[in-house]
Design a protein around this nucleic acid. Structure first.
Lengths: 197, 197
DNA sequence: CGCTCTCCATACGGTGGCGTACGTTCGGTT
DNA sequence: AACCGAACGTACGCCACCGTATGGAGAGCG
């Protein structure tokens, strides 16, 4: 019997294949790398394929940024939220998740300072949702609304600053496992105040 | 008597004119804008002029980044240092200076996440000197060496995170004068501990 | 007055990405 | 078996920037 063609060598591409490759290029080399022709050659195809799935480059960038927003913001939040626990627990897990994904900071930090209007707009939405979620967690752990929000902003700024440092000058940041754990706790305390346990 | 030709309409350009224009483009639109042809047309000249003063684009970027390092790091530090006062005073002035220059953050944040090796190298030097200076100030105000350094890193990360936020989502940051002053004090306290006066 | 060195313009060829036009292949109907 | 539409290839023109070649224009000095 012949195998159903789930197939070895190289099948045809769908829109999602392009988005996946674009997201990879985005996190590896920033928004500039999300372009039709380079992605085509990376996928082993030609522009004809790309301009079939997307009207133009802007449409590709848009789809990629939507996927980015979904995976790197909404997904993470809902996963952290799903696993439950106290607000402090969730905050700690959130911090752990985003800290280990710091290799992705190259893309993140390029996205932050992009001039592309589409990229900026999606980034603004992402930052909004992230800060809102942080604010909610801080409120749930006892802070007043105003204090929670301003501290959420502070925490987010600090974290994203760390992410950028991790890319440009990684040597200034702690690298040993226990130093990283210590940094994790310190940051948690800075955000939530002295540890209650 | 005839006026010495300090001159009205349009004199010839020198290397420094190019560097000035390049620095402007850098802070306005990021490292990508530091290119021969666009700058030429911005200066009302042609590429012939540019390639006279610089061997190639990389040389232009290099000269521009050197100037940037001088003006936006060394100059600021030595000015703050020259005006004297306690370590706390100098820290406060430093914070004030870099905070008011946040319009420059567009350039700064693009520089932080640039892939250009020359830009990255100069940025690393700049971050190194800035963190070193912060560490020195914190040591002078009583902290132990290790604590001073890790807090300097934290403070720098927080500040640069704020700079990025000021560009991408300015609305989350305080904008009224008294709110900004309050933020200034809070940040100072976060870095130096509870206010001693 | 002419020479030279600095500064600049013009014109050219090269590269990479954009977008369009159009022809082609392949998998699934009917 | 014939067909149709989704997916892809090829070839073209366009633009922005790079870099080179070469020929001036302009001041200053002999």
């Amino acid at each position: 019997m012949d195998m159903p063609d789930v197939s070895p060598v190289r099948r045809r591409l769908g829109r999602q294949d392009w988005i996946d490759a674009a997201l990879q290029a985005l996190t590896d080399r920033g928004p500039e790398a999300v372009a039709i022709e380079p992605l085509a050659s990376a996928l082993g195809a030609t522009k004809g394929s790309g301009y079939w799935h997307f009207a133009n480059r802007a449409a590709l960038v848009e789809a990629t940024m939507d996927e980015w927003l979904r995976l790197r913001t909404d997904e993470i939040i809902s996963r952290v939220e799903q696993d439950g626990g106290s607000a402090r627990d969730r905050l700690s897990r959130l911090l752990a998740v985003v800290s280990t994904g710091v290799e992705r900071a190259i893309g993140e930090s390029s996205i932050m300072s992009s001039v592309d209007p589409v990229v900026r707009q999606r980034m603004q939405v992402a930052v909004g949702r992230r800060i809102d979620y942080l604010t909610a967690l801080l409120e749930q752990s006892g802070l007043a609304r105003g204090a929670a929000r301003s501290r959420a902003v502070l925490a987010y700024a600090t974290f994203s600053g760390h992410a950028v440092l991790a890319v440009t000058v990684p040597e200034v940041l702690p690298n040993s496992p226990q130093a990283r754990r210590r940094a994790h706790r310190e940051m948690l305390e800075m955000v939530l105040g002295p540890t209650p346990v």
